[in-house]
Design a protein around this nucleic acid. Sequence first.
DNA 1: GTCGATAGATGCAGATTACACATAGCCGCG
DNA 2: CGCGGCTATGTGTAATCTGCATCTATCGAC
Lengths: 129, 129
Amino acid sequence: MSETDPSPSPDVRPRLHGELLSTSLLAFLKNWNAYGYQLTQRLAEAGMPECDSGTVYRQLRQLERSGFVSSFWDTSESGPARRMYSLTKAGEIFLTGWIEALQNYQGVLQKALASFDGLARDPGANTKS
Amino acid sequence: MSETDPSPSPDVRPRLHGELLSTSLLAFLKNWNAYGYQLTQRLAEAGMPECDSGTVYRQLRQLERSGFVSSFWDTSESGPARRMYSLTKAGEIFLTGWIEALQNYQGVLQKALASFDGLARDPGANTKS
DNA sequence: GTCGATAGATGCAGATTACACATAGCCGCG
DNA sequence: CGCGGCTATGTGTAATCTGCATCTATCGAC
């Protein structure tokens, strides 16, 4: 009971990044072409915590390297040139696969949380197998 | 339409790791004490793709360092000693926060996917601001 | 004693990240 | 005109994380 005090307090806030970030970008790019700055703002609005813009730009470049998005320079508007991104077919396929995997993951979480909810007994003698 | 051929073919399968892996472990440990080997198998059964056992062990040690789980050596059964893990209060709190963040993330995804679904028009003239 | 299954851990090369900082174009203001 | 601020993108670096292979050790069967 006494070790519920992690003095180093290591980042108790969940961070959404990695695949979560890149798939969010892909999702935004579905049905909508946008550039990095825009996506960064949109992500922040949507409630993504602490989205570093540098990371967003690098992720976009990597998504392009992976063939999931394509880009071109847009100089039609005033201001600095923008790199407009759009989702490719491969990106769409990847996104679909990810959403499936995510639903599976959620199912795992919920099943794990629901099992043994009130009856937690000997771990070695569970109902499985 | 012709660039849908990424020659390097970069891993088109979504991988669940990082926070997804660690939170799955936490979820399994809620209401259930277990050791690494068991969790690795459970994860694989649950459909987690490609769960490297080395990574699982390392994640567990790190979760312990973070104060989200605690462990002790269990030598009661026959066979090699097992390191039994259980969720701490901090781990529960973290897990709860993660689930909230995940639901938020899913909301972001779905909103992003739903917007402009059939009416994708000029990206510069969207309804936002 | 040897083999296989169980159980956990580590070394290493490569990838990924957060943070800070750098670049450049445009706008308004005095 | 000069200057600061906002837009927009990019990079350097240290720290972290990952997958794969490999290693140790215990036990039961033969």
